[in-house]
Design a protein around this nucleic acid. Structure first.
Lengths: 185, 185
DNA sequence: TTGACTATACCGACTGGACGGTATAGTAGC
DNA sequence: GCTACTATACCGTCCAGTCGGTATAGTCAA
């Protein structure tokens, strides 16, 4: 690990930003380098190929996933509330990484698909633990997936607002409570 | 319109297949033409540009959507059962078109994302009509979205089976019934 | 303390291949 | 003779990856 808040990290963030804003096609090495404020050569010094860049991005995503699960388990409002409310916008570093991964998965990069599937499974485990019923947990995680993917894929075409305090989410959570979900762990 | 599966249709289907199998990057004009068994010149005779091909694909998707909604409304097992069970595999022409659209969404052009959003809205309308409650309908459509996008994005990484008669879907539908959804119109 | 050498971090011109699109000449069937 | 193609060649652009070079800091030995 090099000392300063490094070029390597800036490159990863630039890649993520470009995936979100312009899709996989727009996230070229030149564009990523420019965004990160390094030259193309500099980028390729840190990541020897585009493939290695994808690998690095996914590794960071998996780290953020573990962090987010810790936060989720400690959330004062409960796991279910947390997972549904944070399924909706692009605010946190984790949200952004997830949306970027969804963009990557669209282009059939199997690694992004596998990463997404494993994140989904982690959530399912945690929610199952909390609500006690595997099928109820599955329904909840699917709703979360639906919210995520809608914001990931529909972009400007979306009808869903991206506000985690939206009262429509309150109502959605009330309906979810009917499934038998404990709203607190 | 000529008699058998016309070259035009074959081109559209080949494009769809390639989107599903190889993503947007793999669906090049050369690859689509080869898959459809026409020459590149032949493809460009029918669709003057890749843009026109996308347009043609989306037009067919929207036709299939209207057909599917008619089928859904007439489904003997009810709208909710139908929408959840058919959210899961790549069997029908409509399913395949939807998965392909998810691959295309927001990659280069917002049209696929807009189309997806409008299909989502049509479903929401229909389900709201049937179950009577907008929030319950939203939860159901989100579960359907979750199932769809999981099969669209996770590909080989998926843990979800793609079998509409899977008993896990039966259990999921039982849980959804607790939301207050009428399982028949 | 200075000069030789090494490692790390980065630059940017260039190459080669892929891809969208154009063009043109020709063919089979109605 | 028109529609619906096939076949092939070619062009310009974009893009991943290569390569030679530069800058800086640190090591070490004479």
């Amino acid at each position: 690990m090099p000392r300063p808040a490094s070029a390597r990290d800036r490159v990863l963030t630039a890649y993520e930003d470009l995936l979100i804003e312009s899709g996989e096609r727009g996230a070229t090495l030149d564009a990523v380098a420019a965004r990160a404020g390094v030259s193309k050569g500099g980028l390729l010094y840190h990541f020897g190929s585009k493939d290695a860049l994808v690998e690095g991005f996914i590794a960071r995503l998996m780290d953020l996933t573990e962090e987010d699960i810790d936060i989720m388990l400690a959330a004062p409002e409960g796991v279910v509330d947390y997972i549904i409310r944070t399924s909706v916008n692009e605010g946190t570093a984790f949200d952004r990484a997830l949306i970027a991964a969804a963009r990557l998965a669209q282009t059939a990069d199997p690694r992004a698909g596998v990463a997404l599937a494993s994140i989904h499974d982690r959530w399912l485990d945690v929610v199952t633990q909390v609500v006690g019923d595997a099928t109820v947990a599955r329904a909840i995680v699917l709703i979360s997936d639906g919210l995520y993917y809608n914001s990931a894929l529909m972009g400007m075409g979306a009808t869903e607002p991206n506000d985690p305090t939206d009262e429509r989410l309150d109502r959605l959570l009330e309906v979810i409570a009917r499934l038998g979900a404990a709203s607190r762990p």
